[in-house]
Computed example of a mutant assay.
Amino acid sequence: MASTLTGRRALVTGAAGGIGAAIARRLLRDGARVMIADLDAERGARTARELSEPGAPCLFQAVDVSDEDSVTALFERAAAEFGGLDVLVGNAGVAESGGGVTGVPVAEFRRVMDVNVMGTFLCARAAFPLLAADGEGAVVNLSSIFGVTGLPAFPAYSAAKGAIANLTRQLAIEGGPLGIRVNAVLPGYVDHDMGDSRSLLDAEAAAESLRQREAAAARQPIARQCSPDEIAAAVAFLASPDASFVTGVLLPVDGGFLAQGDWRGPGQAA
Rank of each mutant, 00 (worst) to 15 (best):
V34K: 01
R49L: 09
A37S: 13
V71C: 02
V87E: 11
A45H: 02
S52L: 02
E81W: 04
G31K: 07
D69M: 13
S52Q: 06
I36W: 03
T72Y: 06
L39W: 06
R77E: 14
E42C: 01
C58H: 02
A79H: 13
A45Y: 00
F75Q: 10
A56W: 05
A41K: 15
V87N: 14
G55Y: 08
G55F: 08
L28H: 04
V34L: 00
E53I: 10
A79W: 07
F75M: 07
Q61H: 11
R49I: 03
E68C: 12
I36T: 08
V63Y: 03
L74C: 10
L39V: 04
G83K: 15
R33S: 14
G83V: 14
E50V: 05
E42R: 08
R26V: 03
L85W: 09
G84E: 07
L59Q: 01
L39D: 02
V87Q: 11
A80D: 05
V71H: 02
M35Q: 00
A62T: 13
V65Q: 07
R43C: 01
S70N: 03
E50N: 08
G84W: 12
T47I: 10
Q61T: 04
I36N: 04
R43Y: 01
A79M: 01
A79C: 07
S70F: 01
A41Y: 10
G83D: 15
A73W: 12
M35F: 00
E76Q: 15
R33L: 15
I36P: 00
A80R: 05
G55N: 09
E76V: 11
R29Y: 04
P57V: 07
E42P: 00
G55C: 07
E68W: 01
G84R: 14
A78M: 13
A62D: 08
L27Y: 03
A73Y: 08
L74S: 08
G31S: 06
Q61M: 03
T72M: 03
G84S: 13
R43E: 01
Q61K: 07
I36R: 03
V65L: 07
A73D: 15
S70H: 03
A78K: 10
I36Q: 05
A32T: 00
T72G: 09
V71S: 00
V71W: 04
C58T: 13
R29K: 11
L74G: 11
L51P: 03
A41T: 15
A32R: 03
R26C: 06
D86H: 10
G44T: 08
